[in-house]
Nucleic acid binder design. Structure first.
Length: 581
RNA sequence: CGGGGUGUAGCUCAGCCAGGUUAGAGCGCACGGUUCGGGACCGUGAGGUCGGCAGUUCAAAUCUGCCCACCCCGACCA
């Protein structure tokens, strides 16, 4: 491609709305142009890079046994009603109407559609496993688009769906796709780690996200350097400090005038925070069930914080929000001095009680009394109160002991989620009737997995991970072009002729080259070459031609080498192959 | 949706608080000339519904109100 006719321009200054490095470089290098919030056009260079990524993914998914298909972006909403997600899917679907007022959803994901496909196309266990994938535009009515290509409302996703006969077979398929993901990110030049992720209320067995760790990521990840444990903060566990066992002491009310918070309480009574019992009130609404919110009383040891994702899962996917003091009072309880003891009797409405498992082994805690300015000493689980649900609902925080090895301390990082692999199970196959006949002729629902990679976001992450102060430093596998050919002072000393010949010869050899044939000063051309970031720069100038040579320079290095003009194309081809690995 | 911020030329911004001739600068773009290995220089020129609508006023980029768009922070996700 000739730079003189390329349908994009480089920008010396990035538009002010761009803050993250990848966003700034995407705009400065002329890879994309924004049309609206979270909606972008791809310009030639950006599109080529995206297609390189697409091809890597395609090759890896094929190698893992995937079959490429193509499903519609327009989906009848009836299908979403059948799966039960019409109302529960967040963010809400983009809905359009056809001329007969029939509602169609712009597909944000394709579990429903692929399950329909399976239903008709696959009947026997002998055909399993089936791994079907597509690379296609998705539409999500995101609450907020952000970070350039990091969070889009229209984006390209590779989504693969697997169907197995049982959970054990799914485990194997999952591992296979997992490995394909590892390979994919490696080939894209993106450092990425797999972290444990929330699998949501669907209750799948495993779910992992692939994260590129970077300051500008929007996800938070806790890792243990000692054993390698890594988890999204919404999923992360930690080894809870247990308190020394004590015999239960009798309940004892104490006056605590003006004490509202756990910190106040611990200070007032001279007790450590972990000897207190914290009460938190949530209003839980089941999405899609028209009823009002249900009050939930959450009890957790005073030193711990509630992880709302875990709590939501325990409550079957309810939407949660903290109740304010007035709402707490309306239920008949006392904020700041609430007690799990007799809470159900004290409340005016039915209250669900959820306890973190930290309270089980914590004897003689100090809790509320359901009376203002009074607390109770020596609260013991089981003897004094019981919860409807006991589960781990604690938030893991940096510095806490690792749940896996127990020795390392968790540390916090930010990351961009570039991929997600997920053991779905049989929810969709059961609801939509995607069954197969097993060896004994029994109808059974397929055990599904789903796996996604956001291509646009991956492209942004690749730039995030591969740039310097001058511009992009494309990994060879993703670079729009392998070579950036520059003709300096093209009107002098046969430079244009030499450059044209080299450009043509590279084309004949199948070397992808971007050719800067513009009438620009050397400074501009070099600066643009650095900004655009192709792996190999080839310069033809009066100075090199004096020596009957051209100059080669890798984007990752500062040294240049001269190679004879006569061998230039062959040498460039060879270097390109070396760079590509 | 709540909180914060920004809208003036293709990009970066000044002008607005204290309303008053043809609304400015740098970069970019066009033409001519000089340069030519790290974003050169000189000259000429094109390019603007000052986000939109309404209001106040003799007069609005500037003051007031409403609306819109975009960015950032929180809940969702690839």
């Amino acid at each position: 491609m000739r730079l003189s006719h390329l349908m994009s321009r480089t920008l010396r200054q990035a538009p002010s709305e761009a803050e993250t490095p990848s966003h700034r470089l995407l705009l400065r290098a002329g890879l994309v142009q924004q049309l609206a919030a979270g909606i972008y056009s791809f310009l030639p260079l950006g599109w080529r890079a995206l297609r390189k990524i697409e091809q890597i993914i395609r090759e890896e998914m094929d190698a893992a046994g995937g079959q490429e298909i193509r499903m519609p972006a327009l989906q009848p909403v009836e299908l979403w009603e059948a799966s039960g997600r019409r109302e529960t899917y967040i963010p809400p679907l983009f809905i359009v109407k056809d001329r007969r007022e029939r509602e169609l959803a712009l597909g944000p994901t394709h579990e429903e559609v692929v399950t329909e496909l399976f239903k008709q196309q696959v009947q026997s266990y002998r055909e399993l496993p089936v791994l079907a994938y597509q690379i296609q535009t998705k539409f999500r009515n995101e609450i907020r688009a952000r970070g350039g290509l990091i969070r889009l409302r229209e984006f390209i996703m590779m989504d693969l769906y697997s169907f197995d006969a049982d959970w054990e077979a799914l485990d194997h398929t999952y591992d296979r796709v997992f490995q394909a993901y590892v390979q994919t990110f490696q080939r894209c030049g993106l450092p990425a780690i797999a972290v444990h992720a929330d699998s949501g209320p669907i209750g799948g067995k495993d779910s992992q996200e692939f994260m590129h760790l970077t300051e500008v990521g929007e996800d938070q990840v806790l890792t243990c350097e000692r054993c390698g444990y890594a988890a999204n903060t919404e999923k992360a566990d930690h080894r809870k400090v247990t308190l020394p066992p004590e015999g239960p002491l009798p309940l004892e009310e104490v006056a605590t005038p003006g004490v509202k918070t756990i910190e106040d309480l611990a200070r007032f009574l001279g007790a450590p925070v972990e000897k207190t019992l914290k009460a938190v009130f949530y209003a839980a609404s089941q999405p899609g069930s028209g009823g009002g919110p249900e009050p939930v009383f959450v009890a957790i040891r005073g030193d711990l914080v509630v992880n709302e994702t875990k709590l939501r899962n325990v409550l079957g996917g309810a939407e949660l929000r903290l109740m304010d003091d007035r709402e707490v009072a309306d239920v008949g309880l006392v904020a700041g001095s609430a007690s799990p003891i007799g809470v159900k009797e004290a409340a005016k409405r039915p209250v669900r009680v959820v306890a973190d498992d930290s309270v089980l082994s914590a004897p003689n805690l100090i809790g509320g009394a359901n009376k203002p300015d009074v607390h109770v000493r020596n609260v013991n689980y089981e003897r004094d109160w019981r919860a409807d649900v006991v589960a781990d609902i604690a938030l893991a925080e940096p510095g806490y002991p690792c749940p896996q090895c127990g020795e390392g301390a968790l540390s916090l990082h930010r990351g961009i989620e570039v991929g997600h692999v997920f053991k779905l199970g049989t929810m969709y196959s059961e609801r939509l009737g995607a069954t197969f006949l097993d060896q004994r002729g029994q109808q059974r629902p397929a055990v599904m997995g789903c796996y996604g990679i956001g291509l646009d976001r991956l492209l942004a992450a690749v730039i995030e991970a591969n740039h310097d102060e001058r511009g992009i430093v494309w990994p060879a596998g993703v670079a729009p072009y392998a070579v950036h050919l520059i003709a300096l002072s093209p009107d002098r000393a046969g430079v244009r002729d030499a450059a044209e010949r080299l450009y043509a010869e590279l084309g004949e050899r199948g070397v992808e080259a971007l050719y800067d044939d513009r009438e620009e000063s050397p400074g501009v051309k070099f600066a643009d070459a650095d900004l655009l970031g192709m792996p190999l720069r080839v310069t033809v100038s009066p100075r090199t031609l004096e020596k009957s040579a051209v100059e080669l320079k890798r984007r990752t290095e500062s040294e240049t080498t001269l190679v004879p003009l006569s061998e230039a194309a062959a040498r460039v081809e060879r270097v390109v192959k070396v760079v590509a690995g």
